[in-house]
Design a protein around this nucleic acid. Structure first.
Lengths: 220, 220
DNA sequence: CGTCCGGTTGAACGCGCGTTTAGCGTATTA
DNA sequence: TAATACGCTAAACGCGCGTTCAACCGGACG
């Protein structure tokens, strides 16, 4: 394994555990090299960061991103099996979302796409109710599930300890599964008056119009 | 208005617009004073940050936090009226959630409490379906709505421009209202098999057991 | 064997950070 | 009026940051 790759992997781990504010010297120490060599290989700290982003994205694309791109409580179960193995990657990704950079947005768009296909399949096989605007629903579900997970992890990570993502996500699943399933099967509102009122507005009609305008209450 | 308060308010604005990494000198310039005076008044940068947290929390408590503590698409509408006025506070709060600190958690717990009462009222008046575990549902709804909003705002804020929170939140409402209302009224799953399967498990029974074990499908 | 060249080091540089300190000006007080 | 306390500034200090640079080392090559 080349030194360059060793530095890159060490950077991913250190960035993930301590944030992008960590100094080059700490990364160099973790990789067992000198600070100057890091700059020599990657040009600058930003260059290193960019190469880390690229590498993480490449790994995820290779693995088809199944572990994180399947939202909802169903896919989360089997994802826990892999998450221990990819813990440094997960930490890095969480930091990337929090810090802004392009990687978070890129991953998010992938997840939206995967969710869209996942929901389409569910609708086709009758396991998911159809929507007036499938694209908006897929984006909504992705935004809410990813956002909630990030907030949950971040509130847990306030302690200095690097945080065990596997157990944290397990705890999240424990806390969330019942209300999520309730929501998914029974909804929140006892009747459809609010939805109909919204659909009667100009905005509501426009939003629903992006999908087939006819709407069926029961699938199959 | 005392100079101390002017520095504090300038710090809230600058922290909100450019993050907590901003230097003391920038805050001092924004407040029209010297860097040394900032330290002289607040002891250290952390002391200043703590006083900002305290001040923000006090303002929100005074205003009963109605603008941000009522989740769901209903309360968000009237909140937009006030949000322009409190834009610096909102920016600071968003930064606080992203950066960790105690303020985010504190606000979150307040929101959970408010959501609990809000949902209880809705259930009592028949406008919201009852839950097997109202506490878990309130926490779930708060976590998901706050998390989604933070993620949405943060992905929008990637540009250097300070970001207009009023229009951003309006856009979020536009994107989310239809799928959210669909979800709230019709759910996602066509039948209750998954929910029943989960309730049959040990975990599911334990989670549902925290609420009154009998469950009614229709309110009133 | 001599030469060269890429990988690597350790020391140094410049910079901006948070913070300290000495001193100034002004208003209050005896 | 003289003394004092306080708000405030300007300059500096020490530190850690990202980055640069001269030198070194070991193997490839003529």
């Amino acid at each position: 394994m080349t030194t360059r790759a060793r530095v890159r992997d060490a950077a991913i781990t250190v960035f993930g555990n301590h944030g992008f504010g960590t100094g080059v010297r700490a990364i160099a120490t973790a990789a067992g090299v000198s600070p100057g060599l890091v700059i020599h290989h990657f040009g600058s700290k930003d260059g290193l960061r960019a190469e880390c982003d690229e590498h993480v994205l490449r790994i995820i694309r290779e693995q088809k991103a199944e572990a994180i791109s399947t939202p909802g409580p169903a896919g989360a179960m089997q994802a826990l099996a892999d998450i221990e193995q990819y813990a440094p990657l997960v930490a890095y990704i969480v930091r990337s979302f929090q810090a802004g950079g392009g990687l978070g947005e890129s991953l998010f768009e992938h997840m939206v796409e995967d969710t869209t296909q996942y929901l389409e399949l569910g609708v086709a096989t009758g396991r998911v109710r159809p929507s007036r605007n499938p694209a908006a629903r897929a984006r909504y579900l992705t935004l809410y599930n990813v956002g909630a997970m990030l907030l949950y992890l971040q509130m847990r990570a306030d302690k200095e300890v690097p945080l065990d993502y596997a157990t944290a996500i397990r705890d999240l699943a424990t806390d969330v599964t019942l209300p999520a399933l309730e929501m998914y099967t029974e909804g929140l509102l006892p009747d459809s008056s609010m939805l109909e009122a919204y659909l009667a507005t100009e905005d509501g009609a426009a939003q629903a119009g992006a999908a087939p305008p006819e709407h069926t209450d029961s699938p199959n």
